[in-house]
Each structure stands twice: as structure tokens, then as C-alpha cells.
Design a protein around this nucleic acid. Structure first.
Lengths: 224, 224
DNA sequence: CGAATGTTTGACTGGAGTCAATGAGGGTGG
DNA sequence: CCACCCTCATTGACTCCAGTCAAACATTCG
């Protein structure tokens, strides 16, 4: 980003927001007047089915932009909730249009962000639809590890992971019990460790192999 | 769109392309020099897993924009293939940037397109992850029917559906056999009919109810 | 010390997958 | 004109991966 961009961002920026774990940030079906960039902390995007089932769309990490759908379409397709304490950079939805108008490249970047999200969702859909439980879980840890590594949030094989097995189960369309037993298999094979809120990746290659995935360069994420 | 927009589109447009059924339009992992708008015909977006399994990302209908990911990120996250004969409006990827620069609103619209796709993918993910086979299939027919109805391609309860049960199975993460038997249930309950390439929706409300979905207004699709 | 939340295990069930064979149409070449 | 083939839809029998139920542990916390 150029300095001009940054100053433009600053004008667009309304302030910072700190929320406690469990706080809902955005609600499915609503039209938030604000958009956010996650500066610190982690959370979840999810949707609820009418029968109460929850699908975790994906995990939210620092650098992620929240509220794009509301900003563009006027309605959120999913909810976003803080899992840990979060620090958010707040933008004003009303300013989004003038922000884009000021520099066409910003519209391009916004579209890029949305396209990247779409890309990840396509991967997740493929996982939930075609991978077995073991493959899914191995795939997910690899994906998350690479994502965190790309943003230098993981240190030599260890990453912070404040989520519960329930969240993983809901993300992969598996039952909690089966998720637990399947993670147990990976742990017993010495491929990963999970202590408290930290996960250790012992054998990334093996995990990637089980998860039927390659270790290609993770896509660069534009940060807004 | 204003007339100015249309003339801008015309300059962006390279020509028209007609392809036969089965023709690959875009390839996962590739960077197509061209982008398309589907004018006529239907097709599929899909990804392949390393073990050969196929996940159908979604069905492609007239008005859909193809190649957005390649245009924005430089790589397609999925392949696109023609199921019927197709007529495509062809754009030049190289011109995309100048196209956006000419009018910031276009960048906004592009982002909108991507956000709409993201929204649908989130819905699909929820379906594959949380709905039962019967719910999934009912949901899918409702979704497709509403989509086609919105573009006036369906006539009072009947729609053209040139896809195979294999495609539906791959879209919902179900086996072919189970998909067939589940569709059989809906047919035996007189909720829908399927003759050749045409599907009749006999009881939309009932289907929506089974599919755990509401009949909210389908989102307006910007056409590029 | 309960109470709450989350993880583990074991036993059993069932929805969906696999295998395999039969139909049902549509082309096509002899 | 029809036997042959190919693709796709349909069925039945059987299997199994993952879901459900339920109880025991483990941690944290007021």
C-alpha cells in the first residue's frame, strides 16, 4: 500500500473495538453499519440451520476482513463471533462507497478479498463433501497451520488454537464424538499434539498426505 | 446499467463463443486469458481431489460470470465445464483492470459478484455439512428452481435440467445410488417429477419445508 | 466443594456407501 | 430393421463409516 492508501484507510477507519470471548460481531441476515478488520484474536464464521444445526463456515484469524457481504450485498450470509478476546479495526459501511470511488484499485482489492474467500469456501466444500473424517481433519490442521504460518503467527510447528472440538466438528460436518476419536488417531500416530490452546504439528508432510492436499504456497492475503 | 456502461462493456467484450456439451471452459489451477458471461446453456463448476473424487461446486446458469477467480487472483480454484451447448460472451482478462479503472463502480460490482458467489457457497457448505440426504436434495431443487425462476428460465413449475444424477450426487457429497433412491422418495411423494431433461416442481412449499429452507426472494444477480 | 464446560471411551445404531445386476433409451453400423 | 453398445436410471443385498446414547474423566471457577 502507498502512503496515500494508508491515509485513505485512516479516514475510512472509525476506531478500534475490543470484545470479549463469545461476543457476536456480525449476525446472519443483518446489515451491519460497520465493517471490521481483525487485528488480534480469533473467531468463527457460522450459519445456523432451521433445525438448530450449526455449520462453521471457517475460522477467523488476524488480518481477516469481516462484513464484506453486508458491505456489498446489504446482508450477511453468516454470523461472526469472537472466540478469544478480539481487537478489531472498525470501518464505516457508509464510507465504503466513497472509499472505493477515491481509488478504483480499492474496488479491485475488495473484489480480490471476496474471491479469496470464495476460493477457500470451495476448498472447504470439497472437503466436507468428499473427504473422509480422517482426511478432513488432517486437511483442516494443515490449512490452518499454513494460514497462521503465512501471517507469522505460528512458531516452528506450534500454533495457538483456542477452538473446541465442537467447532471442528461443526466445520467439517462431523459429530463431536467421531471428531474426537479421529483426532485421537492423529495424536496416537504422533502427527500432532494438542495441549490446552496450543497445537503442535509434528509431521506436516504426513498430515498433508493423509489430507489429500499439497503444501503449495498459501495465497497472499491483502490486508485492509 | 447506463449506456456508458454498456458501451464500456462492449469495448471490454472480445466476442462470442459457442461450445459443445462436455467442453472444458476453465481449468482449476490455470490462469485463463479470458473471462466469460454465460449467455445460453448450462454447465458445472467442480474441483477434483487427488484421489479422483469430484466435488461439484455449483451449477452454472445463464447470466453467470465465469473466471472471476482467475481474473482477480490469477488462478482458478475450480474448473468449469459445459453440460449443454453453450453460448458465451468473451472478455479479455488483460482489459479487466482498465475496465475497472474507467469506472470505480465496476470494481464494486465485481466485488459484489464475488460476494454473491461466496454467499451461495456458504449455503452449499451448510447443506453438505449439516443436512441429511433427503433435506439436501429437496434444498437443491428449491434453490435451482428459484434461481431459474428469477431469470425467467422456468415456466410454471417446470425447468430445464440437463444434468445427471451423478452431478447431483457430486454436488451434495452423496453416493450415486443413495442420491437416486432419495430422489425416488421425492418423486413417489409427488413433490417433483423428472422426465428427460425437464423437472417439474409439484409442491415447492413442501420441498422447501423438507429442505429446511425458506422461500425468501432470491438475490438479484448483476449481469456483466 | 459443586457446577459447568469440554474431552474421552465404550456400546450400539443407522444413514449412507459399495457391489452388483437389471432396466430403459438412444445411437449406429451391418 | 435390428442386434449391439453405451450411458444413465433403478433395485436389492450387504457393509461400514459415522452418528447417537450414555457415562466417566478432567479442568476450571465462583
Amino acid at each position: 500500500m502507498t502512503e496515500e492508501d494508508v491515509s485513505g484507510m485512516q479516514r475510512f477507519k472509525v476506531g478500534e473495538l475490543v470484545v470479549d470471548p463469545g461476543t457476536p460481531i456480525l449476525l446472519e441476515g443483518s446489515n451491519s453499519p460497520q465493517l471490521f478488520t481483525l487485528l488480534h484474536g480469533m473467531g468463527l464464521r457460522y450459519r445456523h440451520l432451521e433445525n438448530g444445526e450449526r455449520q462453521v463456515i471457517n475460522f477467523v484469524f488476524p488480518g481477516d476482513f469481516l462484513g464484506l457481504q453486508a458491505g456489498l450485498m446489504g446482508v450477511m450470509g453468516h454470523s461472526v463471533e469472537a472466540t478469544t478476546k478480539m481487537t478489531l479495526c472498525v470501518f464505516d459501511r457508509k464510507e465504503l462507497w466513497s472509499f472505493i470511488k477515491a481509488d478504483p484499485e480499492r474496488g479491485f482489492e475488495l473484489a480480490w478479498l471476496a474471491a479469496v474467500e470464495e476460493h477457500f469456501l470451495g476448498e472447504s466444500l470439497t472437503t466436507v463433501g468428499q473427504r473422509t473424517a480422517l482426511q478432513s481433519i488432517a486437511w483442516m490442521f494443515v490449512r490452518i497451520y499454513l494460514r497462521l504460518k503465512a501471517s507469522r503467527t505460528s512458531i516452528d510447528g506450534t500454533m495457538r488454537f483456542p477452538f473446541k472440538q465442537r467447532d471442528i466438528a461443526d466445520a467439517l460436518g462431523l459429530s463431536l464424538v467421531h471428531t474426537n476419536k479421529t483426532i485421537g488417531i492423529l495424536k496416537s500416530r504422533q502427527l500432532l499434539g494438542w495441549t490446552g490452546d496450543d497445537i503442535q504439528i509434528y509431521d506436516l508432510d504426513k498430515l498433508a498426505s493423509i489430507g489429500l492436499t499439497t503444501l503449495a504456497d498459501p495465497k497472499i492475503r491483502p490486508i485492509m
